[in-house]
Design a protein around this nucleic acid. Structure first.
Length: 302
RNA sequence: GGGGAGAUACCAAAGUGGCCAACUGGGGCAGACUGUAAAUCUGUUGUCUGAAGACUUCGUAGGUUCGAAUCCUGCUCUCCCCA
């Protein structure tokens, strides 16, 4: 019998954390967290990371295992999860992966193309060009070195253009030549069950969750991290807005409502991403038992 | 009781005779996404339609005009100042 990874995507606020814990305890397996901000041990409140009690109920992996100053990436996550799974499957043929980081999830399920690491100097060189000369300069450069990518790139998006340029220059090969979109074979099978809620319900959960974060001390947590605000890990909903408040740019109330708004937007982007993944079977949060039995039946089938 | 200001689409706010279905911002909705992705970026937002287009909008009722969100009059409401 083939090992199984149960993948549980869902927008922020749908209730994945608690749901996954219940599922994993029923199955007696552990949880792989796929949340790119809960990775960081310094960011607990603002990321709604599972608390001590929740962590005690089921063994979690990839929660609070990094410092905000560590370098990490999607491909490292893919590598680390694939390296961990055999030991999990040795104990139980099933594992649960849940979280809201869409591309990280896809990296585990489908794999990323092999692209060499880039030269940090090249990266900062192009970042400087972008700062001084704007996006038009990036476009022109991409057009020169990788016309194929230029033809299909999002020419408004500096992140995409910068990435293409740094890869092309670091490797001496056009970025587009690395992009094969090959789906990797995995030696385990994947079952995708998504957890969602009605939009309006999701919004009110998000609102109350943000209020709770404030009660739990998001302000203090952000204040303790403000010296690291330039780090990518802190370019995160909840922290950025609190930094603006701590700067005195906006009021506390404004910060709170911006956090709510930006969390809503994040949830929407998540759904946009997953909507095109036909492998996901969706369940409303109110159909918990139905979802459990669906999963258990599928597990028996094999 | 007297004087003044204003009512514009979900909200805020421009427009002060035709180029206005109406600038802009917010919010909403939708989309993209191959390496720090809770990031980064795009579109759309009166109704009907695939589209061309048609139809109804700028507090309300009238009027002026070839033509009004824009001008005039009555009414309703809001705000400010003086009593």
């Amino acid at each position: 019998m083939k090992n199984r990874l149960i993948v549980l995507p869902g927008p922020t606020g749908a209730g994945k954390t608690e749901f996954a814990i219940e599922l994993a305890s029923r199955l007696g397996c552990s949880i792989i967290s796929c949340d790119s901000r809960q990775f960081y041990r310094e960011m607990k409140i603002g990321t709604a990371a599972p608390d001590e009690q929740q962590l005690a109920r089921v063994r979690h992996h990839f929660v609070s295992f990094l410092s905000i100053t560590d370098y990490y990436s999607i491909s490292l996550f893919e590598r680390d999860v694939l390296a961990l799974l055999p030991s999990l499957f040795a104990e139980n043929p099933v594992a649960v992966m849940t979280g809201g980081s869409m591309l990280y999830m896809d990296a585990v399920c489908r794999g990323m193309d092999d692209i060499p690491d880039t030269d940090p100097d090249v990266r900062s060189k192009y970042a400087g060009i972008y700062e001084r000369e704007g996006i038009a300069a990036l476009r022109m450069a991409v057009k020169m070195v990788d016309p194929e990518y230029y033809a299909r790139a999002d020419l408004h998006n500096p992140r995409r253009l910068l990435r293409a340029l740094e890869i092309t220059e670091s490797t001496g090969r056009p970025y587009s030549s690395f992009l094969t979109a090959t789906v990797r074979e995995r030696d385990f099978s994947i079952l995708k069950a998504g957890l969602t809620r009605e939009r309006s319900e999701l919004h009110s959960i998000i609102d109350s969750r943000v209020n709770r974060m404030m009660e739990q001390g998001l302000e203090q947590e952000a204040a303790s991290l403000i010296g690291y605000r330039h780090l990518n890990a802190l370019r995160t909903v909840g922290y950025r807005e609190m930094f603006s408040y701590l700067d005195g740019t906006i009021t506390r109330e404004e910060a709170v409502s911006l956090i709510k708004r930006n969390t809503r937007r994040y949830a929407r982007r998540q759904m946009t991403w997953w909507n095109r993944d036909r492998e996901i079977t969706w369940f409303d949060a109110s159909q918990k038992e139905l979802m459990f039995s669906w999963i258990e039946n599928r597990l028996k089938e094999q």
